[in-house]
Design a protein around this nucleic acid. Structure first.
Lengths: 344, 344
DNA sequence: TCATGAATCCGAAACGTTTCGGATTGTTGT
DNA sequence: ACAACAATCCGAAACGTTTCGGATTCATGA
């Protein structure tokens, strides 16, 4: 493995100048820069990251520690996350270190150790909870990190998120304008921050539109097709209090809901309106539903490059200010939502 | 961030002795070892990996480069792989660096660069093809690696695998002993090494049992429930050449096959026998099938610790010999396979 | 002719660890 | 009393890079 010294000997230059040439510094002539880079290629030079890290104090490693192991096929979205992030950091010349903590083990001490080891330049946090202890820990330790989603209690951290408050709000307002008064919400798991924001948005919009809040119309669940089906069936049991519209946390829940409504002989959108949020990760497209599904849409996949950008900024530490980005959500009205049925 | 020098000053010892104490070397007294370790804890010392790497020449990083991006929900098994491996290497104090190469990009140059950079101590190869170019590349470069599965052409590399030849052979022999003469094989994708070994085992066993080989009875496919269903339906079209038994590459294919047979009104095991290989990753248990499924079984999850062990050996390079381990497969006869139906 | 400044280069120190070779003790056997 | 040996320690070099401060050259303008 060739070193800078090898190149410097081979060319009769100082190590300093070779280093500066390789890193495109200003005070090296174009001629020598070219000579150096040619020699580097010829000798098969590759920078020794350990040596560089030792002097720069940066390892080039970012880490994603995933608590809670796997929870079955629902975790396919997680593979998407890992895939996207690993790629973005690769593009930026950084190594993406993954650690999936087995289920049942407490992840916080692992974060603590990893952060204290100084081996990592930064961390990516996913699956934020409303009051996430990892945010508190890393903030206190002064370790760079970026969160996919927002912690509610520690507002002053870098994150990338979509405006989940607005997602639910748009859904409610759309349905309320169509005359719906009893709107059910099939929300994501309640320990996640985004579910909380959606619930808040739902409640706020109900208030805005002058609608009453009925806790029986809101349910939190793992977002799978199966759960969508059975919980929809439960929410829409026949009776005087039966809702006339349903908001689904994602496309899979909506798919389950469609099945439930079919089984119950309720026609969309005549008997019931359905809207959902589409994060464009599952192969199913809202437009391919029958009837086609009204959605708020914002591609999950736009997160990775943003998260990587933000973390790199954070690591460079040029600015003390935290980067907080909210992605746009697009509202697409389609055939699954319509005017509320007038009493017959 | 405290260093060895800090501890040495704090204790009036030499840096040498502190280092040796921290690494449990022989020639340091128990008394000073304790003092040193206490001081280390007190000062919050954590070894600087870059510095250590620089002198030892080992980075503590292993890398998994996954070509081909994602192929949808079928890739849930891949999450299992990543999860298991990241854990095993964590236990061994190594960092697991992941890079998922986007679909369409050629992964080989990435392996080439990563190996040439010297940043990684070793590589894990998955999804081996029968003549895998990555095996050739890394062998030639002299970089430590371990393969999950075997390359057929480059036999002299370290690997962990199950005896896929034997898997198919056991299936055939079991069915042949029950009197089956026309045995269909629903194999995995043909570009994977394990599919080739299974096909070889199938052919060998047919020979052993004196049965004829009919290419029409063998089909390669992605191993999903859907493919299992439609391909079973096709293999078992009515006619004089209809097979009497089916070997499925995994549990998902078997599940699809069951559906197909139900639709075709063929009763298991009276009209047709079904066997499969169970790698115990999908939540579905062969014993929970109705009728319960005859399988060869060997848990995928045993691979991770073996792969990590082997790669660590390879990295230490104590032995020039390659580690090649074949896991056992267990044969479990259940209700889905029975004597061939006598002509009525 | 001489100061000025830009362009280009270099030596040496520093990062924190491991390890080689040797030094200093104290104990043992003769 | 002395050699031999084990136990315990230490100084210094080395790993490969970056960077600080300064040095050299050469053209420029006064």
């Amino acid at each position: 493995m060739a070193t800078l010294k090898d190149i410097s000997k081979h060319l009769g230059l100082s190590v300093t100048q070779v280093s500066r040439a390789m890193n495109n510094h200003s005070d090296v002539s174009k001629a020598t820069r070219d000579r150096v880079q040619a020699a580097a290629k010829e000798l098969g030079y590759a920078v020794n990251m350990s040596a560089r890290s030792l002097v720069t104090g940066r390892s080039g490693l970012v880490s994603l520690i995933r608590p809670g192991g796997l929870s079955g096929p629902a975790d396919i979205t997680y593979l998407e996350t890992i895939s996207g992030l690993s790629n973005e950091f690769f593009k930026r010349g950084m190594q993406f270190v993954l650690h999936m903590v087995p289920i049942g083990e407490d992840a916080l001490p692992i974060y603590q150790k990893a952060a204290a080891s100084g081996s990592f330049d930064g961390f990516i946090l996913t699956d934020l909870t409303p009051d996430d202890p990892r945010v508190a820990l890393l903030t206190e330790m002064g370790v760079p990190f970026v969160a996919h989603g927002r912690s509610a209690t520690h507002a002053r951290h870098s994150y990338f998120d979509i405006d989940n408050f607005d997602v639910a709000r748009q859904h409610v307002k759309h349905l309320a304008k169509l005359g719906h008064k009893r709107i059910a919400l099939l929300n994501g798991p309640q320990n996640y921050a985004y579910s909380k924001y959606r619930l808040d948005g739902y409640l706020a919009a109900l208030g805005e539109m002058g609608l009453a809040y009925d806790p029986d119309l809101v349910v939190s669940t793992l977002m799978t097709e199966g759960h969508g089906m059975v919980l929809t069936a439960r929410l829409f049991e026949d009776g005087p209090a039966r809702p006339t519209a349903l908001i689904c946390g994602n496309i899979l829940l909506a798919k389950g809901a469609y099945k439930a409504f079919e089984a119950m002989d309720m026609r969309i959108p005549y008997d019931v309106s359905v809207v959902a949020h589409d994060d464009v990760i599952h192969d199913i497209r809202g437009s391919a539903f029958y009837p086609s599904l009204t959605v708020t849409k914002s591609p999950f996949s736009e997160s990775w490059t943003n998260l990587a950008d933000i973390l790199c900024l954070e690591i460079q530490g040029k600015t003390t200010q935290k980067s907080q980005r909210l992605a746009d959500v697009e509202f697409i009205a389609r055939a699954s939502s319509g005017p509320v049925k007038t009493k017959q």
